[in-house]
Design a protein around this nucleic acid. Structure first.
Length: 428
RNA sequence: GGUGGAGUGGCCGAGUGGCCGAAGGCGCUCCCCUGCUAAGGGAGUAACGGGUUUAUAGCCUGUUCGAGAGUUCGAAUCUCUCCUCCACCGCCA
């Protein structure tokens, strides 16, 4: 959620910046609503103030033994007026809130302007795509031939966009997650977390999945804003970032750097027909997530650092990748700036997203009421939150299978993983 | 799942209809006293929102005592629903 003050003071400017990411802000409508809001709120509150003070008088009069039937009759009338004003105000406030909740974050000045992914800009390329002297197979063929990827069983058990892994491939998948977690905790300063996979609606509002992106979630019954139902996490960003909800940290506690390995569940509504083959787009996939909760002045610095941590995983695995800065039109809802890391997939002959690292600024923190008290200061201030995949485990498995395949269909195991595979150097 | 108890400020804890945004204590900040340490004395110390304003200063004002709804001129206090925690019983990885 944006600072409501933007809606009052910097409306034109805000509209302009939102337009760069394809969001049209109805300036005139908001001006009208704000005008009404101001009047309604002031009248409501002054009625309230009058009732408060006169109710106090009644108490004192009653204590002195005076007759209060007259004044109580007046208060009944005032009460009705107040009731009406309150209702009108609540209605209007709700309308404004809906607009506010559905407005995306403002992009940072350094973000290139564009309408879709074609406007993203490559920042760097790391590693050379390997030249194969045989016809490369994709991860589906490789995994099935090795008996490690079982799409048929997954369809039987659950449906499409699920996977059953078996044997050494299942172990390799686990090794990847393990390795990432160890790297981030031992070398990058993150605290390992184990978190719930089912979360309540408050948490989803906090990180911005609700109200706008409810269709992407898997829910338990009845699962609505007010309901008791819970949702499966679409990313560990939700539980990790919500750690800071309703908290006031000491400045000396910052930054908080959290990481967790969790499954992620996404309904993928609206992506029918896209990436139907293989592990690229699944309803359930594992991810090692990094979250940082930082001082507002440090968040862009932290974004560079956090992205670097994700890059380090790719480097250590020897997987060629490129780093993209997303343009205004392709960024996620809450992001002020996002780097995507794309790994080279030889079978597709292209780079595919494997990590997305965003500085969310105070956008989530405002909803979360995630604050800190600057040393020596009285007033708490909003924190900034960041999140990034470090990395998506399933897609990393894809990348390892495809990049490390040998002519005979075996898979070489990257150096850093061999220790996690009991010293094994090859699969198959 | 059953029965009983409880949720109040950074923390502990009082408070059964108006004098309560809330006693007292701890903690914290500032000041005084003290040769050092320890002890002592005094003052201050919730968050969020609206209006006014150059102002995150001041002033006016609203909301918040687990959440929501209700009763009432008036609710931390009474009623209902829900959530959470604690104890015991049952069940269980």
């Amino acid at each position: 959620m944006l600072d409501p003050k933007f809606l009052r003071n910097d409306l034109e400017q805000t509209a302009l910046r939102l337009a760069s990411r394809g969001y049209t802000l109805d300036v005139e409508l908001i001006n009208q609503l704000e005008e009404k809001r101001k009047v309604l709120q002031v009248t409501t509150e002054s009625l309230q103030a009058e009732r408060n003070s006169r109710s106090k008088e009644i108490g004192q009069a009653a204590k002195r033994g005076e007759d209060i039937t007259q004044i109580r009759a007046e208060m009944n009338v005032l009460g009705e007026d107040l009731e009406r004003a309150k209702e009108d105000f609540a209605l209007l406030a709700e309308e404004i809130k809906q607009i506010a909740y559905n407005m995306p974050n403002l992009p940072h000045e350094s973000v290139p302007v564009g309408t879709d992914e074609s406007g993203n800009i490559e920042i760097l390329k790391w590693g050379e795509p390997k030249q194969f002297d045989f016809d490369v197979k994709d991860h589906v063929d490789l995994g099935e031939a090795l008996g490690g990827l079982d799409f048929k069983s997954a369809v039987k058990i659950s449906g499409s966009r699920f996977i059953v892994m078996q044997g050494q491939i299942a172990k390799l998948h686990r090794a990847l997650a393990q390795y990432m977690l160890d790297l981030h905790t031992n070398h990058h300063g993150y605290t390992e977390m184990y978190v719930p996979y089912l979360v309540n609606a408050d948490s989803l509002y906090g990180t911005g999945q609700l109200p706008k992106f409810g269709d992407d979630l898997f829910n338990t019954n009845p699962a609505t804003e007010e309901g008791i139902g819970m949702s499966l996490i679409p990313t560990a960003e939700v539980p990790l970032t919500n750690m800071s909800r309703d908290m006031i940290y000491d400045e000396s506690d910052l930054p908080l750097k959290l990481t967790a390995h969790t499954p992620c569940f996404r309904s993928e509504a609206g992506s029918y027909g896209r990436d139907t083959r293989g592990l690229i787009r699944q309803h359930q996939f594992d991810k090692v997530e990094m979250v940082q909760i930082v001082h507002p002045e440090k968040s862009f610095e932290a974004l560079e650092e956090l992205t670097g941590h994700a890059e380090q995983v790719l480097k250590n695995l020897g997987l060629p990748y490129r780093k993209m800065v997303l343009c205004t039109g392709d960024m996620g809802f809450g992001a002020t700036k996002t780097y995507d890391l794309e790994v080279w997939l030889p079978a597709q002959g292209q780079y595919r997203e494997i990590s997305s690292c965003s500085n969310v600024g105070d956008f989530q923190a405002r909803r979360l009421q995630a604050r800190f008290r600057p040393t020596g200061a009285k007033k708490p201030e909003l924190l900034h939150t960041l999140n990034g995949s470090g990395l998506a485990v399933g897609r990393t498995l894809v990348a390892v299978l495809e990049n490390y395949q040998l002519a005979d269909g075996r898979i070489e195991i990257p150096q850093v993983l061999q220790h996690y595979m009991g010293g094994l150097s090859h699969i198959g």
